[in-house]
């Protein structure tokens, strides 16, 4: 249903030839106004302060297929409020909701780096929902670089051959929080481009859900879309007290499931 909504929105925008708003007018963007109503109704959305949510994105996308992006909150479980969910939205993409990130108790802090495909000049926005129900938005305007950069996979045959390879790495940061990176080899294709010879649209085939647990406790549950770059990568924090096992489960649109796990040793300081 969520995808259907996105497709309808994408069609509306394309059909009306909507002009994207100037950098200083994130609120006026036509795509966003429709999405806002669909996702949040009439709820108030505050401008995020630096403690609540920061969105990092380059002002210029060097390679439109692989734009590094991060959402970070300084609110942790000891704070009075914490981030439960972050929506990551790319106004100019055919399917604007790139990711919905749910942070579990083992996440420690909402802090995720990933990479996006960015179809055209426009706003990227992150909206955080806190446990008190309040909404907070951070926006960045991203320009596409010049030249022939297109948000398409560079080598579909190689991508198909490697589909399903995964890597999960853990870094010890010397405290209660540890950082992990999950890499998934997957073409993450949209199916939006018609094959000019067969006149057929290829089937979309992308990662739709990523679930990470530590010692069985949810760290991150992400519903994602083909706005995430080929070979999706997620770098995130988790509370790595003691020793245990970090596990990732990935499901794609063909209901293929990929899993990986990595043992996590107790920290040098005994934590």
């Amino acid at each position: 249903m969520r995808h259907l909504l996105q497709w309808l929105l994408a069609c509306c925008v394309a059909g009306s030839g909507a002009v994207f708003a100037a950098p200083d007018d994130a609120e006026a963007n036509a795509v966003w106004r429709q999405l806002r109503t669909g996702l949040f109704g009439e709820r108030a959305i505050a401008a995020a302060d630096a403690d609540t949510l920061v969105l990092e994105a380059p002002a210029r996308a060097e390679d439109a297929a692989i734009v590094p992006i991060a959402v970070r909150s300084r609110l942790d479980p000891t704070a009075a409020r914490r981030v439960q969910t972050v929506w990551l939205i790319v106004d100019g993409n055919p399917s604007p909701v790139a990711a919905t990130l749910h942070f579990g108790p083992a996440s420690g802090r909402a802090d995720v780096e990933t990479r996006l495909r960015i179809e055209q000049y426009g706003f990227v926005r992150a909206i955080a929902e806190l446990d008190d129900g309040s909404l907070h938005m951070a926006t960045r305007f991203v320009k596409a670089s010049g030249g022939c950069s297109a948000p398409a996979g560079k080598d579909p045959a190689a991508a198909a051959a490697n589909l399903g390879r995964m890597r999960l790495k853990v870094e010890d940061m010397g405290g209660a929080l540890r950082r992990a990176q999950l890499m998934i080899s997957h073409p993450n294709t949209s199916g939006l481009a018609m094959d000019q010879l067969t006149r057929l649209y290829p089937k979309p085939h992308f990662v739709r859900q990523v679930t990470v647990r530590y010692r069985g406790q949810p760290v991150l549950v992400a519903e994602v879309d083909f706005s995430i770059s080929e070979n999706p990568s997620f770098r995130f924090l988790f509370r790595g007290d003691g020793e245990g096992e970090l596990e990732a489960v990935v499901v794609d649109t063909e209901d293929r499931t990929f899993q990986t796990r990595v043992p996590v040793a107790a920290r040098a300081d005994g934590g």
Binding site: A150, P151, G153, P156, L192, A193, D195, Q196, L197
Partner: peptide, 30 residues
């Protein structure tokens, strides 16, 4: 053909942005 199909819309939009009216008639021929 597949590579062009995946990029045609993006390339055509990029050309229209760069050339304006002068892009008219330019199109992908596979």
């Amino acid at each position: 053909p597949e590579a062009l199909a995946a990029r045609a819309a993006h390339y055509e939009a990029g050309l229209a942005e760069a050339l304006g009216d002068a892009a008219a008639g330019s199109r992908i021929v596979a």
